[in-house]
Structure formats: structure tokens, C-alpha cells
Design a protein around this nucleic acid. Structure first.
Lengths: 132, 132
DNA sequence: ACAAATGATACTATTGTGGTATCATTTAAA
DNA sequence: TTTAAATGATACCACAATAGTATCATTTGT
């Protein structure tokens, strides 16, 4: 199992690079050179980040991307939410039949506890905290 | 993303049922009726639990399964280990290039912290604690 | 002998992940 | 005003993982 899939990973790296460049507009071709990620894939990822309001996009010659909000307001959890849609750890279990069988479903509570912890941790990891 | 896949889920339910029956030998056909899980799939799952020493198996007429060790010594984490082999949350990230870029890879440490927590929690959920 | 059970193994179908490919649109600059 | 450099949108494809099915062999109680 992976907590973090490749697109989330790539998004994170790209954002770190873009964040370091401050207000400068960074083109995909530049990121590709730096990060060695296949260009069409990275484009798709950045377009998605743009759609979700994480990046500001500029078309045309000299165009590219910059952060749409400060680096300390973009969190790893945001990326998970974008690229790994229905992210909840306990999907199967609590919808189905175990719950009724077990008193007040002990399991759900414990899985929820884990999920809450993970969510909080991921929500505390900002791009700013990674670029230092 | 799912923390718990369907086979782990089914295994958990089957084990809870078997645990409640104490020393009685339970056949797959019985579990199928109770849990509404497709029989061939459940068979595969129970065979796997047997191979990994979680269940004791009895062939022939009147055969079936019972726990191979006490219910308080079988943990959710054991099931994850059996059905979701290479279970580590941070796979992608720390093998690759982000680490060198970031000072001492802050990220890896934080992901590791999450992983440790999840592992500990899952290791504390026993079948016994679920059947009450 | 026979039927009821598991053991072993190979196959299949669906879904998710990790991409490609293509064309449309915008824009700076020659 | 043409052109090239960029993103926007969308459809497609390949591979791996998940979620099963199917079949035959083996064991064992009656």
C-alpha cells in the first residue's frame, strides 16, 4: 500500500521547486529538466494543481506557473485530496456488516482515531516547511 | 486510498466469527452463510491464513478451521502483513530525489512518524478486543 | 466407496495507477 | 500579422493490483 502515489509525489516536488523561485513564473520545460519527470505527465499534474487553485497559470510565450497562495498555506494533505480523491482509510469496514455485530463497533472508532492522526499530520506538512 | 483491502476485511470478519466459536471447528460453508462472502474467495483467504499460521485447518468430512493461537495474539497488523505485502507508507518519496534537495529530508522523518503511529495502532487491535 | 471438506494452482475480470497523444487556445515578440 | 512558445482540455493506452472464479487433487468420517 502507498500512502502517497506518484502524482502526489511529483506535485510535491514541483511545488517545492516553484516555491523556491518565489514570484518568478516557471515553465513546465524548466521543471522537467530539473526534476526528470516525463513532460506530458507533469503537465497534467500542474494543470490539475491549477484547476484546484494551488497554482496560478500564465499562457503563451514566457508563460508557466507560480504559487496561487503562500507556500505556508499549501499542505501535503491538499495534494492527497486532489490526486487521491476519496481518501479515507476505513472505507470498507464501517459501511458493512461488522459494525452491527460488534458492540458499538470498536473497530470503527479505532480506525477513525488512526485516520484523524494521519489527517492532522498531513495537514501540518506545508510546502514552506519543506523548502526550509 | 484504502488502508484495508477487501481480503483483509473479510479475513478479519471470518476470524471474529471463528473466535466466537472458541474451539469448535468451523467450515467455510458456514462462514459463507453468516458473512455473505463469495465462497471461493473466502476459501482462498482462509487457506492463506492457514499457510501463515493464523488458522489451524482440518480436512475431510466435518473439517474446517479454528484459531491456531489465542484471539488476543492475532492482530489487525498481522492481516495487513499477510494480504498487503509490502506495506510501507513512504515508498516513493525517500528513495528518490526529494531527500537530497531538502535539508536532511524533513519529509521522510515526518512520514516515518506517521507510519510508526499507524503500525503501533494496528498492532494493538486484536481479534479478542473486537469480539469483546 | 463416497461425500464432505480443505490444498494447490491457474485463470479472469475490473479498477487504479502511470503515463501518451492530440488538438485548441493564448500570448509575446519578430 | 505571422509564428513559436507556452498552457487548456480531453481522449486514449499500458501495466499492475485488486477481487474474484474454476478446477483438480488430497484427506477423512461414515
Amino acid at each position: 500500500m502507498k500512502l502517497i502515489t506518484r502524482d502526489t509525489d511529483y506535485a510535491l516536488r514541483a511545488l517545492c521547486f516553484i516555491a523556491k523561485e518565489k514570484e518568478r513564473i516557471v515553465a513546465v520545460s524548466e521543471l522537467v529538466k530539473e526534476l526528470k519527470i516525463p513532460k506530458p505527465f507533469l503537465r497534467k499534474i500542474l494543470q490539475s494543481l491549477h484547476k484546484h487553485g494551488v497554482l496560478a497559470a500564465y499562457k503563451g510565450v514566457g508563460g508557466g506557473f507560480k504559487l496561487a497562495r503562500p507556500a505556508n498555506k499549501i499542505f501535503l494533505f491538499d495534494l492527497l485530496a486532489i490526486f487521491q480523491q476519496d481518501w479515507h482509510l476505513n472505507e470498507c469496514l464501517f459501511k458493512k456488516m461488522l459494525c452491527p455485530n460488534v458492540k458499538k463497533c470498536v473497530l470503527k472508532k479505532r480506525i477513525d482515531k488512526i485516520e484523524d492522526f494521519v489527517r492532522k499530520e498531513l495537514s501540518s506538512i506545508s510546502i514552506a516547511s519543506l523548502v526550509g
